[in-house]
């Protein structure tokens, strides 16, 4: 299988300085991994994917598959499967002809015939017997699966998915992504998945990279990324979060903690680096609890959403937006606290 590596990849549009879409991106996607690029629109994630596929030529840097440089190889010779946001199904061909299109250029794997391969792929995506339909007779979810089957048919070395679910409704998206991760892990296919939806990214990825403004902010597993965001941007982009900026005052007597002042309120935090004056730290909504009686803040509730298992509370403390996850809440004002170890430092200077 295939390990994908990007080294120092930059992309500028226009002449001279131009606008930078990618700045010095280094990335390694391990063999068989489902790797996600996530970030707000315009962050360069799609440009990265298109560079891997060969549709964009990097201004600087190299792309290699298994150590083999790919930068000069045209897209049709890279052996990648691509699924686009709009699917790009060929409207003048049937579903079977769409799925079989790549087999006009590459033989099906394991000596199967073209027809067998098409049937196999349609079965894999639960579309048995739909081969004779036209793409426009299918629902959005079905079209998406045809696009996936088509990309997989020639047994590519690498699968690239560009926001493949964003045109679908939420429930369908969830069932399709379970299907996708099942297929991906069965085939053990190295996969790069681009999405702006951080929930989706956390849910499906083996590892993921958060991108912002053409650069990579952090590469990590979903758990690491959620609990230990490396930058303030990651902390705010991935999942709900409460971010505070404070001034470091004094070391607490036992030595491991510091007192940090935020707008006149003093918190005790763990993990503050030595010798800094100011820190930014984040506390996940679930870490703010009514039963913890340290580091307390009183939150003025603005709205609360009942979500079955929990209630999401949106409120303010000292003009800052605060998000809470509670089992239940009906008060207009409530007091919550957090353990010093549940705060995570995202920036210090």
């Amino acid at each position: 299988m295939t390990e994908l590596r990007l080294e120092g990849v930059s992309k500028r549009y226009g002449s001279g300085e131009g606008t930078a879409a990618l700045r010095d991106v280094d990335l390694t996607v391990r063999d068989g991994e489902l790797f996600t690029l996530v970030g707000p629109s315009g962050c360069g994630k799609t440009t990265t994917l298109r560079t891997i596929a060969g549709f964009e030529e990097p201004t600087a840097g190299t792309v290699s598959f298994d150590g083999e440089p790919m930068t000069a190889v045209p897209p049709e010779e890279r052996d990648v499967g691509v699924v686009f946001q709009s699917y790009g199904l060929f409207p003048h061909m049937t579903v079977a002809e769409n799925v079989g299109y790549g087999l006009r250029f590459r033989d099906p794997p394991n000596g199967t015939s073209v027809d067998e391969r098409i049937a196999e792929l349609l079965e894999l995506v639960d579309l048995e017997g739909m081969g004779d339909r036209d793409p426009d007779q299918l629902s959005g979810g079905q079209q998406q699966r045809v696009a996936l089957a088509r990309a997989l048919a020639p047994a590519p070395d690498l699968l690239l998915l560009d926001e493949p679910m964003s045109a679908l409704d939420a429930r369908l998206r969830e069932s399709l992504r379970r299907q996708l991760t099942r297929i991906q892990s069965t085939l053990g296919l190295t996969t790069v998945y681009v999405t702006h939806d951080q929930d989706e990214a956390l849910a499906i990825s083996d590892r993921l990279a958060v991108m912002n403004d053409g650069q990579i902010e952090q590469v990590a597993t979903p758990r690491e990324l959620y609990h230990e965001p490396a930058t303030r941007f990651v902390a705010e982009f991935v999942g709900d979060n409460n971010v505070f900026d404070g001034t470091v005052r004094t070391r607490v007597e036992d030595g491991a903690r510091y007192r940090v002042d935020v707008d006149g309120t003093t918190f005790e935090l763990a993990g503050v680096p030595a010798g800094v004056d100011r820190v930014s730290f984040c506390v996940r909504p679930a870490a703010l609890s009514r039963t913890v009686e340290r580091n307390e803040i009183s939150v003025a509730v603005e709205t609360s959403e009942f979500r079955g298992e929990s209630v999401h509370v949106y409120g303010r403390w000292q003009e800052r937006p605060i998000v809470l996850r509670l089992e239940d809440a009906s008060e207009d004002e409530l007091t919550v606290g957090f353990e010093p170890e549940d705060a995570h430092i995202v920036d210090a200077w």
């Binding site: 897209p75 499967g81 709009s86 790009g88 790549g102 006009r104 250029f105 990309a151 020639p154």
Partner: peptide, 11 residues
């Protein structure tokens, strides 16, 4: 995306 899909598929 149609032309690009075709190219990724080997055309």
């Amino acid at each position: 995306a149609m032309v690009e899909s075709a190219r990724a598929l080997g055309a």
